[in-house]
Design a protein around this nucleic acid. Sequence first.
DNA 1: CCCCTACTGATCCAC
DNA 2: TCAGTAGGGG
Length: 719
Amino acid sequence: MDVSYILDGLNDAQREAVAAPKNNLLILAGAGSGKTRVLVHRIAWLMEIEHLSPASIMAVTFTNKAAKEMRGRIEQMLDIPARGMWFGTFHGIAHRLLRTHWRDAQLPENFQILDSDDQLRIVKRIMRELNVDDSRWPPKQVQSFINSQKDEGLRAAHLPPVHSIYDKTMAMLYQAYEQQCQQSGMVDFGELLLRSHEIWLNNPALLSHYQERLSYLLVDEFQDTNTIQYAWLRVLAGDKIPIMVVGDDDQSIYGWRGAKIENIQQFQNDFQHAQVVRLEQNYRSTSTILSAANTLIANNGNRLGKQLWTDGNDGEPIDLYAAFNEQDEANYIADRVSAWSQNGRMRSEAAILYRSNAQSRVLEESLIRQAIPYRIFGGLRFYDRQEIRNAVAYLRLVYYRHDDAAFERVVNVPPRGVGNKSVSDLRARAREQSTSLWQATVERLQLGLIKGKAATTLTHFIDMIDGFSIEQENLSLSQLTEQILAESRLLEHHAGEKGEKGQARKENLLELINATKDYEPEDDSVSPLSEFIAQAALDAGERQAEEHEDSVQLMTLHTAKGLEFPLVLMAGMEEGLFPHQMSMEDPVRLEEERRLCYVGVTRAMEQLVMTYAEARRLYGQEKFHPVSRFIREIPTDLIQEVRLKNTISRPVSFSHSSSFSIEEDAPAFHLGQLVAHKKFGEGTVLNYEGKGPHARIQVMFPEHGNKWLVLSYAKLTPL
DNA sequence: CCCCTACTGATCCAC
DNA sequence: TCAGTAGGGG
């Protein structure tokens, strides 16, 4: 059999990985080293050469997007539908397991997945019921406590004995939350993993069933696995199934959500005889950019160690621009993008990256002012939008009447006169009888215990949902959705919201109908409705209204991971912003910040531009942050400080007060003037700010770059 | 039920 | 600074 198409075009390391024996395998894949390619070719190899059946291969990723991409590329390469193959996220696969083995998992057959919003509502409700003061214990904090325990694989019963009032309160709430979920058959994200891990542990026969059925595991982005995911893989693999993990410890940037970089370091100890392959040849960036990345990341300790290289050329130096303030920074960035597109390049080839979302506003304003189309990546998940969640809640109710979270969400949306009082009444009833809200409502209506307007509207609501269920028989999922949106008047309700919001929400709802069209009845036995509901919880839905106009991409450094752009602009390279204030003290977290910077730098293919602002308004105050240490960690010969053009002009927005003038504060100096400093030599005045003893002046020294100097100390001589 | 005001708090975010 | 929200009054 001709296998050349599997190995052709791969470099030696890639080939070694793809054609490795069917053993444990750790692939350390540097940025831009062809990681996905290796994964896809490896699967092809396993099927074609090792003759593994699709159904015996499981490939795990972190996002649905990655899973979809991998599946698509396999199908394309082998020209067969990757049917029966286990492609998915940890959570997606765990969900599938629980759905199959719901009895072993002690779950109702149609258990529901809680997303974080549902989860928060439940936490709030429990706190109300237990009379826990929510100003002292913020529900969000409780929620994140619960989730991080689950990430660590700990149930309430597993928590070590605790003494502080904080720990006791959290443990008590965790326990109550667990009970509530179990009682109403609801499963949150962490629970999917926890529960499927447990059914394997408690049920050796079931575990060996899977161990016999599967003959190879592959895991992408292994550096992002958390404790429970790692445990899950270890149990499943046992010493039965060989596993290949692919990752890059230098790109581990999700420690704050439970990822354990140690997992990738631990792999060789826990999985016997693992072969290690390093993919270090980079096909993405110029060697200038790679050198910068390499020296930067070398400042971290405890690395598994990799050195990226390329046989490409040096390319352009890294541009560094010291802005007066964040406005000036934004203008400069917009100028660069505009110059880029005037040079005939696509705007979509350029990305503006920043550490925190708050930075995007100023950038957007500049882009708007210069009429440069842009697109913000990330932001709210499609399925997290209010209107979408409402619509999905209707679908959930149609599918499963006892879904309390869904019931609560839409019983009064659009407003139909079922007030807080009625609902809390029903809640109390439901709790007394240990039934669902739906059940309680139906019973109380039958007994005539609900009076007045609430009675009529609730009856109508119940009948409406029942009606949808009946109609569902004859309708496709999209028709059903359309019907629900119309008859419940949800579409009308959202469309009528004031401002542009109404229009946007209407469009999103229409987009939802569109999305349901992928779920028309097939030969599958599972209902499209339940399929769709599960995916609404498990899939972010990359359905941001797609702009077809050529636009610059704006995103945080985190969301940029995995992407690449010919031109990358990194904004806000200042201490306190990046590395972020909250991560500066702790060396462990500081290293994660550095990895994040490494991720940013390695996104750039041809040109990297970094900017920082000497002064920045932050939380209403003007801050002066020094340039980021990460910039100082890049060799200076790779960096070129951008000089201003000879026409020096101050951004209008910069003046602190209108009465400000050169003559008053710095009579001897004016913009563009040549001055001498005893240490830095001759330079040109670029800017100034402040008054009296605080007045500062910015001077560009050819030998030493841009400096802000305090006038009263600097002892500058005009020339 | 809706709107206005007062207050809070503020990285990164997939499932 | 400002965005998001909780609570009171119309």
